[in-house]
């Protein structure tokens, strides 16, 4: 199983958890995050999202985030999946899963990877609202979430 997948097709979070659990005989904890397309952004109902990315740099930037997480915590396995292309409300966008011997490292590393994925990995969302479309603006709160790990 690769650590990083950028794909248009959906993923099976249950299968990913099973792979993380079975990746090492030492596994004592698996923590995961699954991001879902929300039906509302900044007060407007969203019908679909389109995700663009920078092929090559996306994978490199996520690999660098995973390396940083592995330097901070004793992780056994890491899995990051990010979808691209057109997505409907309630579809899965992103999966971050980590396994470790203990829950503290797994919880922290999962959140760390997600915070930096949101602020460093070159993905852009365009949402369709009432037949029109607009690029989603970056949130200051996302930068603040990443900054607290320094």
């Amino acid at each position: 199983m690769p650590e990083i997948s950028i794909q248009s097709v959906d993923f099976d979070a249950g299968l990913e958890i099973k792979c993380l659990r079975e990746a090492s005989a030492e596994t004592g904890a698996v923590a995961t995050f699954t991001g879902i397309v929300s039906d509302i952004n900044e007060g407007s109902p969203v019908s679909t999202l389109e995700l663009e990315h920078y092929p090559g740099m996306t994978e490199k930037s996520i690999a660098a985030i995973i390396d940083e997480a592995k330097n901070r915590w004793p992780l056994l396995a890491v899995r990051v999946i990010h979808r691209i292309g057109k997505l409907a409300v309630r579809e899965q966008i992103v999966f971050v899963g980590v396994s470790s011997r203990h829950r503290g490292a797994a919880f922290a590393a999962c959140e760390f990877i997600m915070d930096f994925l949101k602020t460093r990995a070159p993905f852009w969302k365009k949402e369709t609202i009432d037949g029109g479309s607009r690029w989603v603006d970056a949130r200051v709160g996302d930068d603040a979430a990443a900054a607290r790990w320094k």
């Binding site: 740099m57 992103v94 949101k118 990995a121 070159p122 993905f123 970056a138 996302d142």
Partner: peptide
């Protein structure tokens, strides 16, 4: 060289 706006993935 790439030019891009602030990222909004995840």
């Amino acid at each position: 060289v790439a030019f891009y706006p602030p990222v909004t993935g995840g």
